[in-house]
Amino acid sequence: MVDGVGLAQPRPSSFGPLYDGPPIIEVRDLGISYGGKPALRDASFDIYRHEIFGIIGPANSGKTSFLRALNRMDDFTTGMEVRGSIHINGKDVNDWRNLYALRSRIGVVLPLPVGLPLSVYDNVAFSPRLRGIRKKAQLDEVVERCLTRAALWDEVKDRLGSLGSLLSGGQQQRLTIARALSQEPELLLLDEFSIAVDPVTTMRIEDVLKDLRSELTIVLVTNLVQQARRLADRTAFFLTGELVEIGATEDLFEGNVKDERTTGYIEGRYG
């Protein structure tokens, strides 16, 4: 790996994380604070290629803050300070000379859907257009493929021209997932994506995420511990700004923990 997230990766033949390769994300001594108030302290860990990395923890534990640091949204948040380092594909995210190129390679899905004030079609075509794709046929293809992957195509194929904000909450969330996929990201960050989605659709999206693992790396922040159990290969437990522990998801859920607080949270004793 020389440089950049955008280089083509050799696709693994089978699903599952590549623990033997170099990690895609290396977090070292990461500290995040807002106007001096710490939100995350001294976190160091790696995330591997093609894994689904779960992050669980009660409110205010710093999960969202970590995601914001990953795609450098700290630039957008006044008062947010990030210390330590995050390397993606071996390169410090702070060393990117073109921040926009970094962000364009990272898909983000937020807890509540944020549809751009555009049509369904234009929402999904937004990122391809930024990348310079102009041909209608090519855009049509991307839009259909991404909407299909996000389990939304059948519901919206007849109303691609209407405003994205007119869809139902769950549909809008799937639209933002389609939009994130349209970036052809190497890294997909999901922040409590199922808050506004019904259980059936959540299951469909979870299946999509499992499929996606062969193509990209997923960081899944969730406040549903069972969702982490269903999806994540490894899971990290954050508690009020502290990275309590990281382990194989099965281990954590079977009680093989280094810190009793993890089991406590999984069994519902916090928050």
């Binding site: 795609n71 949204m73 957008f76 926009y100 190129a101 970094l102 962000r103 364009s104 390679r105 990272i106 983000v108 937020l110 944020v114 549809g115 751009l116 004030p117 555009l118 937004f126 990122s127 930024l130 933002t176 939009r179 970036q183």
Partner: peptide, 25 residues
């Protein structure tokens, strides 16, 4: 601001955000 943030997260530059999202909205 959520619109701006969403567009920036997609990799849009400040000008792209302004011309493709903020002004149309």
């Amino acid at each position: 601001d959520t619109y701006r943030e969403a567009a920036e997260a997609l990799g849009a530059t400040r000008w792209e955000v302004i011309f493709k999202v903020v002004i149309p909205a």
